[in-house]
Structures are given as structure tokens and as C-alpha cells.
Design a protein around this nucleic acid. Structure first.
Lengths: 202, 202
DNA sequence: AGCGTAACTGCATCGAGTGCAGAATTGCAA
DNA sequence: TTGCAATTCTGCACTCGATGCAGTTACGCT
């Protein structure tokens, strides 16, 4: 049951994310202080840190949800699937959810991740955490085919391939000004290329 | 020519790294302030930041060297080698150098990377930078077999596999007391498995 | 209505990091 | 050796992120 307290808290949380997004876009990340964000969301500065542990955190509000989605994809495997196939499927399973991740906030996060060291570091850390979590579940799902080490290697290769492809796309000059829809198409195509070795082998 | 100025600067730099290592080991990372490190190296606190841009940086003094080593491995390829083979070879090429990376500082760095968020973030950022650099060189070395995207994917898979496997190996209980040589064998084996799709395809 | 608990807030404090200006050191030439 | 220019070092003042603490406010429940 969602009490009034919980709903209020959720509303302030959203307000903080929106205020931060707005301020980061107009003023820039470093030029925006936590006090500014708190003031815009009409809470005390001190209270900000009871919602987000750090300034960067406000840019990754639903980090847990993504891990959960990947874990879910592993859980709903069909009997015949290989580990690699399961990983590939997580991408298609994320399709609709990925659309949700292409909003204004996501675009901003992308830009700041490439620009601000602190944000970049935080993003990478979250990625690695997710990576380890997925590897653990994948290993549990295929105890006869994978050990800890090979599971780690496989998931690492998978995420690494996707990230590497994405990075290559974003490194193209003018990538950040381009059309998001077109970029998504490019990413899908690039991902297919990157994963071809797995889908072909065996 | 290395002037007296340069030599002195290099000596102070080394002193800072040693002092920091010593303090981090005894007191812990968070419990050591930059002022402590500077005092131990007998320089002013302010001067620390003219040697290292941040507190974390002192843990990664030779970041550029490793990238150079990988680039070197790519440059010294034999005519028949495939891109994937070159990458695997970087592991064996690094063999002796890797031993050098198993010293006291490296062990400390490993522990802090797993423990302190700031250090972890910085390490990951350096890794990704290296990844991009290697991908660029690999692509330049095999212009007929790789485009930007697939080069990014391949290197991403390689580094991802190594990191993922290494992580899994180090997660094993008692890993830090184990035999380094055996661990290196495990690492190589896991990497080969993860890259098998690439070595087979085409 | 009233009580216990959880959330909010201001305040004081610490440490990282930066800009600035002056002192100290080094390189170089006369 | 001496003098000058350039570089480096250093203290000082300051901003901002983050934390601990204590008092206040708001909510949930009986």
C-alpha cells in the first residue's frame, strides 16, 4: 500500500530530478550547486542528500530497474536457449523500456556522461555492478554450462561489445546533435554486427 | 636532456606516490587527507595538485604506459594474425610487465578500486579511455577487416572478457593468497573462451 | 485527539579542489 | 659570479560537496 507519505516522497523525488535536469541543461552541471537544485524543488539543501547520496546520483534515478529487467530476461529463458542467446534477447526485451530511456533526461545524461568526469565515473560504476549481477544470475541459470569465470567473461564480452559499438557511434563527429531515432537505428544495426559472432557460432 | 628541475620534480612525484601508498595502507584511503600526503612528502598542500589533479590520481601514476604497451602489441603484429589473435597476444606480451603490476602498489590499488567509489570510478574511466585508444589503433592496423564500430565491439568484448573473468577470479574466496601464475592461466583460458566466436568466424 | 515515529531542516564542520599573489628556486647569459 | 627571466612552490581565502547532530515538523495509527 502506498501511503500519503510514500506518495509525497515520490513526488519530491521526481521534482528533484526535473529541477536538476532543467538546471543542468540551462546552466551546466558544474555551474549548478546542490543548493540550487534543492531550492528549485523547494526543499532544504540538507534534505537533498536524504533522496540522493550524491549530486551525480540524481542523473541515474532508476538504476535498479534496469538491472532487474536484465535479471528478468535471464529468468524467463526457454529450455533450449544458450547463454549467449539469452543475453542477446535481453536487448530485444528492453526494446520498449529503451524507448523510455530516450527522453530528455537520458539525452542529457548521455552528454554529461561524456563530459563530466564525476558523472562518467558513476555511470561506469553502475554498469559494472549490473554486469556482475547479471553474470551471477546467468551462471545460476546455466550451472552445467558455465562456471563463475566464464560467466563473467561472457557477460563482460557482451556488455563490452554493445558499449564499444555505442561508443564508436557516439564518437562520430556531430553525433550528439543528430536525430535520436536515427541513432537508435544505428545502434540496433551496430549491435547486430557486434553480436554476430555469437549468433553464428555453434 | 633531463634538467635538474625535471629530475627534482620526478623525485617529488615518486615521493608523493610512496607516501600516499604508505598512508593508504596503514590508515585507509578516506582517513588519509591530501594534507597528510603532502606533509609526508614534505611539500605544501597546495603543491600536491600541481602533481596530481585529484586525490585518486596518485594511485594511477603510470596510466599512459599501459596504453602504450597495448598499442605496441598491435604495432608488432605478424602478417598472418587476425585482430582477435593480436588482442589475445597482448596478454602474453604483458606477461613480464604484468608481474611488475603485482607489487604492493598494485595490490593496494586493486583493493581500493573494489572498495572506494571514487577510486573505482577513476579506474573505470581510465580503462574506457584505454579501450577507445586501442580500438582506434586496431582499426588502423586492419583497415580492410574492421570498421570503427566492429573495432569498438571487438576491443570492448576483449577488455570486457578480461575484466569480467578477472573479477570472477578475484571474487573467489582466498583469491589474494593464491598462486599468481595459476590465476594468470585461468585468466587466459577464460579470455580465449570468450573470444572464441571471433577467432572462429570467417 | 494524541502519541510514537519518520522525515525535514538549519547549523556547524570537514575535506577536496581552485584562483591568486608573493616568495623561492632554477635556467641562462653576460 | 652576478643578474634577470621563467618556472615552481606555497600560503591564504574561498566555494562546494558531503556528513553528523539536534531540534522541529509532518505523518500514521490507535
Amino acid at each position: 500500500m502506498t501511503s500519503l507519505r510514500d506518495r509525497k516522497r515520490e513526488r519530491t523525488r521526481r521534482a528533484l530530478v526535473e529541477a536538476a535536469t532543467e538546471l543542468f541543461e540551462t546552466r551546466g552541471y558544474d555551474e549548478t550547486t546542490v543548493a540550487d537544485i534543492a531550492a528549485a524543488a523547494e526543499i532544504g539543501t540538507r534534505t537533498f542528500f536524504s533522496y540522493f547520496a550524491s549530486k551525480e546520483e540524481v542523473l541515474f534515478p532508476e538504476a535498479d530497474a534496469r538491472i532487474a529487467a536484465a535479471v528478468e530476461a535471464v529468468a524467463t529463458r526457454t529450455p533450449g536457449e544458450t547463454p549467449a542467446e539469452v543475453l542477446v534477447r535481453t536487448l530485444t526485451d528492453l526494446g520498449p523500456a529503451a524507448d523510455e530511456m530516450l527522453g530528455r533526461t537520458a539525452a542529457l545524461r548521455l552528454r554529461l556522461t561524456a563530459t563530466v568526469p564525476a558523472v562518467r565515473g558513476r555511470g561506469l560504476q553502475l554498469q559494472l555492478d549490473a554486469q556482475r549481477e547479471i553474470a551471477r544470475h546467468l551462471r545460476d541459470a546455466f550451472p552445467d554450462q558455465l562456471d563463475e569465470v566464464s560467466a563473467g567473461a561472457l557477460v563482460g564480452a557482451f556488455i563490452g561489445a554493445v558499449t564499444g559499438a555505442l561508443q564508436a557511434i557516439l564518437d562520430r563527429p556531430g553525433a550528439l546533435d543528430g536525430d535520436p531515432a536515427a541513432m537508435r537505428e544505428d545502434l540496433k544495426a551496430a549491435t547486430k554486427v557486434a553480436l554476430r559472432p555469437w549468433t553464428q557460432a555453434e
